[in-house]
């Protein structure tokens, strides 16, 4: 069982104070902590679990800058056997479509039975790369996967639908699954794992190594171009309660009481 996991190196923004840069096309990235995309973290763990059960190899692959090396090291430390970094200035501003083309140009020449991606990326959240890549490769896919069972040449997966409902779908292998969070419990990196990972080689490729030209990637090879970003307008007139925790608590209780809820 050869498994390829596509990962992305993203800034952690859930609890960070983010600022829009002066050109209003991006946020200020300096000062932010980068890590593996949360969905990809579950995808990587699932790949390693499947390898442990069925044997084979796991290859982690990313499109990103030199900095994304740390995310690949993490993948290697957590059980990935190989890692490939696709880095080129001309890949910048690629949208999901262009990223999928870049990944495709490499993956099509690799042996694989299964490709795992996260459902979406923390930063841009299109949820497109996985199914587009499957389309380019001409292999079956399932998105939002919460459970995988593999048998000879076939797979059975649970897809997460709305309201807690799931659907079970059968697909032929090779296939691509986009993985939903919560499918497993990602392991912590062991010291041994980190040591071993430091010795593994990360293969680095750029545009010249791929069967693509510069019009296939970056803005020219993309469908989507960001024109402007801004802080979303508030939907409600929010009243902010200030003061010490005691003062805040007193005010909250007053409001709740006035509504007859206590």
């Amino acid at each position: 069982m050869n498994i390829i996991v596509c990962v992305k190196h993203v800034p952690e923004t859930a609890e960070a104070d983010i600022k829009i840069d002066s050109e209003e096309k991006s946020i200020e990235l300096s000062g932010l902590v980068f890590d593996i995309n949360e969905w990809d973290n579950y995808a990587l763990e699932e790949a390693v679990l499947l390898k442990e059960k069925h044997g084979g190899t796991v290859t982690a692959i990313t499109v990103g800058s030199e900095d994304s090396e740390s995310t690949l090291r993490k993948c290697l430390a957590r059980g990935s056997d190989k890692a490939i970094r696709l880095t080129d200035k001309r890949f910048e501003e690629s949208d999901s479509y262009a990223i999928a083309k870049i990944l495709h140009s490499v993956i099509k020449n690799l042996p694989f039975d299964l490709i795992l991606t996260g459902v979406q990326a923390d930063d841009v959240g299109y949820a497109m790369v996985g199914p587009i890549l499957a389309g380019l490769l001409g292999i079956p896919h399932a998105t939002m996967v919460k459970k995988i069972e593999l048998s000879d040449g076939a797979s059975k997966v649970n897809r997460e639908l709305e309201g807690g409902l799931e659907e079970v779908v059968e697909l032929k292998l090779p296939a691509l699954f986009s993985i939903q969070t919560g499918i497993n419990e990602p392991r912590y990196v062991s010291i041994m794992g980190i040591r071993k990972a430091m010795q593994k080689e990360i293969k680095v490729l750029s545009l010249g190594d791929l069967e693509l030209n510069k019009n296939d990637v970056g803005v020219a090879g993309s469908w989507i171009k960001i024109e402007k970003i801004y802080v979303p307008p508030a939907e409600k007139q929010t009243e902010y309660i200030e003061g010490s925790p005691e003062e805040v608590a007193t005010k909250i209780i007053e409001i709740i009481k006035s509504r007859g809820l206590i």
Binding site: T13, I27, D122, D123, G125, E227, K228, Y230, V231, P232
Partner: peptide, 8 residues
């Protein structure tokens, strides 16, 4: 970014 930013 999890709804912290809108993009046009």
């Amino acid at each position: 970014y999890g709804g912290k930013v809108n993009a046009e």
